[in-house]
Simulated assay, not measured.
Amino acid sequence: MSLQPLGIIAGTGFYDLDALDDAHSQTVDTAYGQTSVTRGSWHGQPVVFVTRHGAGHDVPPHRVNYRAIIRALADLGVRDVLAVNVTGGIDPDLEAGELVCIDDFLDFTRLRSSTFHDGEGPEGVVHTDVTTAYDPGLRRELLEAASSIGQPVIDGGVYVCFDGPRFESPAEIRLAALAGGTVAGMTGVPEVTLAAEAGLRYAALSLVVNPAAGVRPGEPITMEEIAAVLEVGAPKVLAVLDELVHTRSVFAADDTDAGHGDHG
């Protein structure tokens, strides 16, 4: 049975995926430039892993080549993409270390190439529906995996994307809160909309690492604080992904066994 590879995209604090067996790096050429991926297997499932900022975190969020990343994943046969985002909490009830399974977004970016459809290709002008840009089925897999291992995950939240690399101002966060924002980040858009344009199923798990600017007055945002939460929170994220991939591997094995039985 030939399995489609699972795409995993991660950012700050997630620069490799130690769980991968037979991991090897590959440079993929696309019409939008090159991108580097790591290919391997996880519980026997083929995986294509991308770290947005590069292994040395040397690519700032506004310069990530999102089009090349999504195009490369599609070209490598990926259909499902799991994204990990490190975010600030806009919702004052969110605590550092909590996980949110995102179901909508707000785009506050200004400087990014945000579509494959610039009107110059053979397809002309294309308007893509992003009502369910975060795929309900893939979101359900994330939530069920978390539930299986007893890891609390908040079901639903609005990801508000800013350009970065600076953190947001308190006024910007107040505006985002008025618009219904749950968490603030710098990488979720246009990644999610490009995935929709490419016909990929996409879901995102957000790790909250700090209250966003002004949410708790007098508390500055520091990289030391973020690093400390990442040290505790990253294993939670990886445990959810591990359970999801393991569950998929079991189902794939069952399907293969059933298929062999049908032909035996």
Rank of each mutant, 00 (worst) to 15 (best):
S2I: 10
L3N: 05
Q4W: 05
I8M: 00
G13L: 01
G13I: 02
F14I: 03
F14K: 00
Y15A: 04
D16H: 02
D16E: 00
L17R: 01
D18G: 03
A19G: 02
T27W: 03
T30D: 05
T38W: 08
R39C: 06
R39M: 08
G40I: 12
H43S: 15
H43Q: 12
V48G: 07
V48P: 07
G54F: 12
V59W: 12
P60E: 03
R63M: 10
R63S: 14
N65I: 14
A72N: 14
A74Y: 15
D75Q: 15
R79P: 12
D80H: 14
V81P: 12
A83Q: 06
V86H: 08
G88T: 08
D93A: 15
A96P: 04
C101R: 01
F105H: 13
T109W: 01
T109C: 00
R112M: 03
F116T: 13
G119Q: 01
G121D: 13
P122S: 12
P122L: 12
G124K: 10
G124F: 11
V125F: 07
D129I: 01
A133W: 02
D135F: 04
R140Y: 13
E141Q: 14
E144G: 11
A146V: 09
S147K: 14
I154Q: 13
D155M: 12
V158H: 04
V160E: 09
F162Y: 14
P165F: 07
R166W: 04
P170Q: 11
P170K: 10
A171I: 05
R174W: 07
L178S: 04
L178M: 05
M186T: 07
T187V: 09
G188K: 01
P190Y: 03
A196L: 07
G199K: 02
G199A: 02
L200F: 09
L200K: 10
R201A: 05
L207P: 00
P211S: 07
A213E: 08
P220S: 00
E224Q: 11
I226S: 02
A227Q: 09
A228D: 07
L230R: 01
V232I: 04
A234P: 07
A239S: 15
L244F: 15
H246S: 05
T247F: 08
S249M: 12
V250W: 10
A253W: 04
D255F: 03
T256Q: 11
T256S: 13
D257T: 05
D257C: 03
G261T: 02
G264H: 07
G264F: 00
